[in-house]
Simulated scan of single mutants.
Amino acid sequence: MFGVTTPCVNAVKERLVKDGYETLVFHATGPGGRAMEDLVRGGFIQGVLDITTTEVADYVVGGVMPCECSRFDAMIEKKIPSVVSVGTLDMVNFGAKTTIPSHLLK
Rank of each mutant, 00 (worst) to 15 (best):
V17S: 03
K18M: 05
K18V: 01
D19K: 14
D19P: 06
G20L: 01
Y21L: 07
Y21F: 14
E22Q: 06
T23Y: 06
L24I: 00
L24D: 03
L24S: 01
V25G: 02
V25R: 07
V25M: 10
V25Q: 14
F26K: 02
F26W: 05
H27V: 07
H27A: 07
H27Y: 08
T29Y: 04
T29L: 04
G30A: 10
G30V: 14
P31V: 11
P31T: 14
G32W: 14
G32L: 13
G33V: 07
R34A: 03
R34V: 05
R34C: 01
A35G: 02
A35M: 04
M36D: 02
M36E: 03
M36F: 06
E37I: 00
E37W: 00
E37H: 03
E37S: 11
E37R: 10
D38H: 12
D38E: 15
V40Q: 07
V40S: 09
V40T: 10
V40L: 09
V40E: 07
R41G: 07
G42E: 15
G42Y: 13
F44T: 04
F44V: 03
Q46W: 05
G47N: 00
G47F: 04
V48L: 13
V48Y: 15
V48R: 15
L49Y: 12
D50S: 12
D50Y: 11
D50R: 08
I51T: 11
I51L: 12
T52F: 05
T52G: 13
T52L: 03
T52V: 02
T53V: 10
T54Y: 01
V56I: 12
V56T: 05
V56Y: 11
A57V: 02
D58K: 05
D58N: 08
D58T: 01
Y59E: 09
Y59P: 08
Y59M: 10
V60D: 13
V60K: 14
V60W: 08
V61L: 15
V61Y: 14
G62I: 12
G62M: 12
G62C: 09
G63Q: 15
V64N: 12
V64S: 14
M65G: 03
P66N: 00
P66H: 03
P66Y: 02
E68M: 08
E68R: 13
E68W: 13
E68N: 12
C69K: 11
C69V: 09
S70R: 08
S70N: 10
S70G: 00
R71M: 06
F72E: 08
F72N: 11
D73E: 11
D73I: 05
A74K: 09
A74S: 12
I76K: 06
I76P: 00
K78R: 04
K78C: 03
K79C: 04
K79W: 03
K79Y: 06
K79T: 05
I80V: 07
P81R: 12
P81G: 09
P81S: 09
S82L: 14
V83E: 06
V83S: 11
V84N: 09
V84T: 15
S85V: 06
